[in-house]
Nucleic acid binder design. Structure first.
Lengths: 220, 220
DNA sequence: CAGAATTAATCAATCGTTTGATTGAGTCAA
DNA sequence: TTGACTCAATCAAACGATTGATTAATTCTG
């Protein structure tokens, strides 16, 4: 059998999707042409129309591949009991800790692989602008985190109304997501503290958040 | 004198900049053509090259106009004293309160005027991707806030190292900026709590932050 | 009139897409 | 086993449309 001449995937569809992932993430949908993508994938530009129906079809395929490349770790989180559970408070406290650890890990860990970093960047962009994938993105990525976090906050702060709970949830997630949204500015001002270390950041944010929720052990 | 036929500015350069601001914010730099911009501005597309030297020149003019359209309110903040000041702690506490109020106000207030909202969106995008305006944006918009906030945190938590201080600063800003970064997702899950009310949000974030810094009055 | 401002028309380049030909592997009757 | 046929995959080339930029003529203004 003839071996592949290089380390590119043998499947041309896969090559196109991966090359397009990197280029779309770098230059945006309108910023890159099919010829450049096809050239990077060592393929003919007509293959885009043949396999994906066009440029938009390729973009959708890139996003779908990004879904599968960035599996959500939220399933690792232990389910949160009802507020009436005898150990609800303790479990919710641990729920916050686990939530932040998994959330930060998932955010920062994706930067290891360039392809996963590009997919993550594209998905984040879709999250921000709210394209046609908004509901799918919300369901697969954010909603499970929201549900888990809301259950925890409701147990720890039963005195809060819906508004305070939502404000708190947004504050917690924003504290971590800011590193993905304005990394350039943070790097410019943080110096050696960027990129943040996953372990130290999640530990700090856990303490920070538990204090903010008013449920931290005294003297922290 | 002939009156303007519509409510557009008389100056054609201003018309082009304002139309381009809205369209660039909506579709991105590559997503809109000069003819569409010129048409929206009731001008000839050749005016872009004549007045701005080209499409990139127009984009730079749009960003510069955005600078002036979105003046930073950070000058309102009272300067933070040295840690040796006898009332440093009290002033730093008030500094955090003012910081969050002004920061949230500045973020949310810009959504009133469509033009200011578009400029804000464009500046935010530049903040995120780190274009050639990154240093100017950082100096005019973020750095004054960073400096003020770091001074406060250093006084309130002198036991913290540089890393913890930076983590805290990012957490505080991220808690507010998330409403500008993923508004679509928040709106999808928050229901009636979106868009957030500037007053209630800054009040919540102030309490939230003071607790997180471990300097809140007991029993909050 | 002189110079700045504005226009319609046009430029070369690039865009996404389409076309027609070619390849190579599989199918099946003879 | 052969030869004719099918079909998906791939290619180079060209399509019409649109891009940003440019030109030359025209209008406005002081």
């Amino acid at each position: 059998m003839v071996q592949p001449l290089n380390d590119l995937p043998h499947d041309i569809k896969l090559r196109l999707v991966e090359a397009a992932t990197l280029l779309f993430a770098e230059k945006g949908f309108d910023g890159v042409g099919l010829r450049e993508i096809a050239s990077a994938a060592h393929a003919n530009s007509a293959m885009v129309a043949y396999h994906f129906g066009g440029k938009e079809g390729l973009y959708l395929a890139v996003l779908r591949a990004g879904f599968e490349r960035c599996p959500s770790q939220v399933a690792q989180l232990a389910p949160i009991p009802l507020p009436s559970h005898p150990q609800a408070k303790e479990l919710a406290l641990k729920g916050i800790q686990d939530h932040i650890r998994v959330f930060v890990d998932e955010l920062l860990m994706r930067d290891c692989d360039p392809l996963m970093k590009a997919s993550s960047s594209l998905l984040m962009r879709e999250l921000a602008v709210g394209g046609p994938f908004l509901e799918e993105l919300n369901r697969d990525f954010m909603l499970p985190y929201f549900t888990h976090l809301r259950d925890c906050v409701r147990i720890l702060r039963p005195d809060w109304g819906e508004m305070e709970t939502l404000y708190a949830m947004a504050a917690i997630h924003g504290s971590a997501m800011i590193y993905k949204f304005i990394p350039a500015i943070i790097k410019l001002n943080a110096g050696s503290a960027f990129p943040p270390d996953s372990v130290s950041l999640s530990r700090f944010l856990t303490d920070h958040t538990l204090r903010a929720l008013g449920v931290a052990p005294q003297g922290a």
